[in-house]
Design a protein around this nucleic acid. Structure first.
Lengths: 123, 123
DNA sequence: CTATTGGCTTGCAATTTGCAAGTTAGTGGT
DNA sequence: ACCACTAACTTGCAAATTGCAAGCCAATAG
C-alpha cells in the first residue's frame, strides 16, 4: 500500500523537525486528544468525558486540525442519524512514542501525577 | 547525592502525567529552548540567535519558568559584569527523549523539515 | 564623561483560550 | 403532526497569552 505523501510542515519558524512538530502539537490540548484516542476513545462525547473537561470549542477545533494534518481520520460509524468516530492514522499512531516518553517524564519528575487506567497510554 | 524532591505537578486539569507534562511544556517555544540547551547554547543571546527568532519577552518568560520548574539552572559564568548562563539539570536532560522522538516524528511525517547540525538534538 | 552591550521590560494590538449559553439536525415516541 | 431529547457542535464575549517593536537598565570600556 502506498505511503501517503508527507504533509507540508507548515512551519512559520524554521525547518527544524522539533519546531515543525511543535507547530502541530505544541499546545496543551492536542496531545491529550491523541492520548484519549490511544486509550480507545473514538467519539466526540467520549473525548468530552475525559477528566480534564476540555472546552467544546477547543475539542472541535483540535479534532478538525488533527484531521487536516492526517493524524486522525473521521469515519461514519452509524447512519441513522449519521455519526462519526475518529481513528488514529499511522501518522497518529507514531505519536504514541511522544506520549509514552512524556508520561514517563511526568511520572518521574512531577509529584501528584499518576496514571489512571483510563489515562494510560499503550503503544 | 540526594535526589531533589519532585516538583508539584501544578496541573489544573488532572493527575494524568501527560496532562501534567503538557502544563509545563505544552506551548510552541518551551521545548525549543530546551532543544537549544541540548545543542550547547547557554546564554540569552545564543537563544535569541536561533533560527526561529523567539520574541524576547517570550524567551525571558520561558527561561524563568524553566528555572522555576527545576528543568534548568541559572549560574553566573562571568563577574564583570555579572552574566548568567543556563544549564540543564537532570530533570531537563530527561526531556531529551521527548525532543528525540519529536524530531524523529517530524522527519518521518512532515515535509520540508530537516535537521541542521545546529538544530540537532543529542541525547 | 560618553558609547556600547547583553539582558531584559513595556505598551499595545492581535490572537487564542475558555466559559457559558445556545443552535442544529436528526431521531423516537406519542 | 408535534414534542422531547440527544450528540455535536457554534457563538459571543471576556480573559489570557502571544508577539511586535521600541525602549530601558546596569555595567562596563575607553
Amino acid at each position: 500500500m502506498n505511503k501517503p505523501a508527507k504533509q507540508p510542515a507548515n512551519s512559520n519558524r524554521s525547518p527544524c523537525p522539533v519546531a515543525c512538530t511543535l507547530d502541530i502539537v505544541g499546545d496543551k490540548w492536542t496531545l491529550l486528544v491523541v492520548r484519549d484516542l490511544f486509550s480507545g476513545k473514538k467519539t466526540y462525547s467520549q473525548f468530552q468525558n475525559s477528566p480534564e473537561k476540555i472546552p467544546t470549542n477547543i475539542l472541535a477545533d483540535r479534532l478538525k486540525r488533527l484531521v487536516e494534518q492526517g493524524i486522525i481520520d473521521k469515519q461514519p460509524y452509524q447512519s441513522r442519524p449519521m455519526r462519526y468516530e475518529y481513528l488514529l492514522t499511522p501518522k497518529g499512531k507514531a505519536l504514541g512514542t511522544v506520549l509514552k516518553v512524556m508520561k514517563e517524564w511526568g511520572e518521574e519528575y512531577l509529584d501528584g501525577c499518576h496514571s489512571a487506567t483510563q489515562g494510560a497510554v499503550r503503544k
